[in-house]
Design a protein around this nucleic acid. Structure first.
Lengths: 254, 254
DNA sequence: CGCTCAATTGAGGAGTATCAATGATTGTGG
DNA sequence: CCACAATCATTGATACTCCTCAATTGAGCG
């Protein structure tokens, strides 16, 4: 079994086959917005809540296929896709591209977050979006420094997922390993648990392989290559990054 | 440049080099918990908020290296890592494993979410965690069906990131393509925008390649192979999945 | 001292990338 | 309606990255 497939998405899919139709009838005139259809497929909304979502969505905006959607175009920071497909992609300086996620009708795009994660949002088809910033603000938790910090913590976790997708999708084993080590070093530095060059790395090469999407043998050879190139010192449990700046540049560039 | 690297994480890292020390002095006795250090590296907390976080963290729990951490062990659903490393991994039925994310001290593990995403949480080292469920509940938004639906929407997006990491890390081009198509079909079904077999696929093979982490040429050949195997019909803009069940099984199994 | 697990090494092959053309389709202006 | 450009899809040939299988070495550890 492939556990990922059995989670919410699949269950919801069963529900969605019926629910949207019922809701559509109740509303007439083309039925509810895609966002409402999507929300009702997860949780049963009452009339008031449906009305709230419909009215909470702001102005509609059209983008031609190929257009890039930028948060600074308007004050909108969260939008729902009404029609068409959008792609959120990371661009590498050599032109390589990794589409990290696609957004289909009914789904959300957090432009502000995308921006912080370094993602460009592009219309893959003629695209229609509606502003949902107010809804997001109303539904997403408290204000204040503590809530902000907490959201940053959550967002940092999501950033790591995104960055890992780019690693796996577009970096070679060599660059992928560098980028992971640099990332782990940054994280331990932030927590005050590593010095400028050296850090703990309590992972077997097998665990590294399972994280990097490589075979254990190839991880071993990649680490050796990094050592031969003078970039790291490695012994089980501990790594020294010899040229952090150069390594960051390598991780960043390719 | 590699935009992903320039976001919050890097900026925060600059801050974190100094802040934790100051906070540590103010508190003495080993300093603040890793969670507080992490939060203060994102947003300046006042004394009251720091106290709130410290008291909001529940019982400490120890796990030996290699142990699996399950949400049903206790009522804890969100924990912070106090010491040691944990891995969140997806397991394929043939034994392959993809570590989707690592959790280091100061970072959060949402066990309930991990469970819904099909992830196993494993201690990579002797691990200490503290319950943060109450904090999470207090800080993460409103109650009610609408807020629940909204969170599901956000969580579904995260699920797609996780699933894509598994695709890129552990599936062949052939299986990866099947899995993506099945996933896209599920999403369009849920939105009521696809019939049982056929769906719109408004992506060029180049876009598919950039999403699947493959070359455009190889995407082309993979699609041809899928056609030859009678699994799909493909013409630009539209795909028919001929054996949805079998395809799902393929996507799930390998 | 014999286990066991992690790390290492070698040989060979499968899977993908790259380079370079060649069709096919669509939209555009004459 | 046609020539043209532009984009997308397809094909072939070749190179290389990375995997698999199979040993071997090294490092704790009861």
């Amino acid at each position: 079994m492939y556990p990922v497939l059995n989670a919410a998405e699949r269950n919801g899919a069963t529900i969605s086959a019926d629910l949207p139709l019922a809701v559509a009838k109740a509303h007439g005139l083309g039925g509810p917005s895609p966002l409402v259809r999507m929300l009702t497929s997860y949780a049963p909304l009452n009339e008031r809540e449906i009305a709230l979502v419909e009215s909470g969505q702001g102005d509609l905006q059209k983008h031609p296929a190929g257009a890039e959607i930028r948060p600074e175009d308007t004050s909108r920071r969260v939008v729902t896709v009404t029609a068409g497909w959008a792609a959120q992609s990371a661009l590498l300086e050599d032109g390589r591209r990794q589409i990290v996620a696609l957004a289909l009708p009914g789904e959300l795009i957090d432009l502000a977050r995308g921006r912080r994660l370094g993602l460009a949002v592009t219309a893959m088809t003629p695209l229609r979006t509606r502003d949902a910033t107010d809804l997001a603000l109303a539904l997403e938790g408290a204000h204040g420094a503590l809530a902000l910090g907490w959201r940053c913590l959550r967002e940092a976790a999501e950033l790591r997922l995104v960055r890992h997708i780019v690693r796996l999708g577009r970096l070679s084993a060599y660059d992928r390993t560098i980028d992971l080590l640099v990332g782990l070093h940054e994280r331990q530095r932030r927590a005050g648990m590593a010095d400028v060059q050296s850090m703990s790395l309590p992972l077997t090469q097998e665990a590294l392989a399972d994280h990097l999407g490589l075979s254990i043998v190839h991880v071993n050879r990649t680490l050796q290559q990094l050592r031969r190139d003078g970039l790291i010192t490695y012994r089980t449990g501990r790594v020294t990054l010899h040229h952090p700046e150069r390594l960051s540049a390598l991780a960043a560039g390719a």
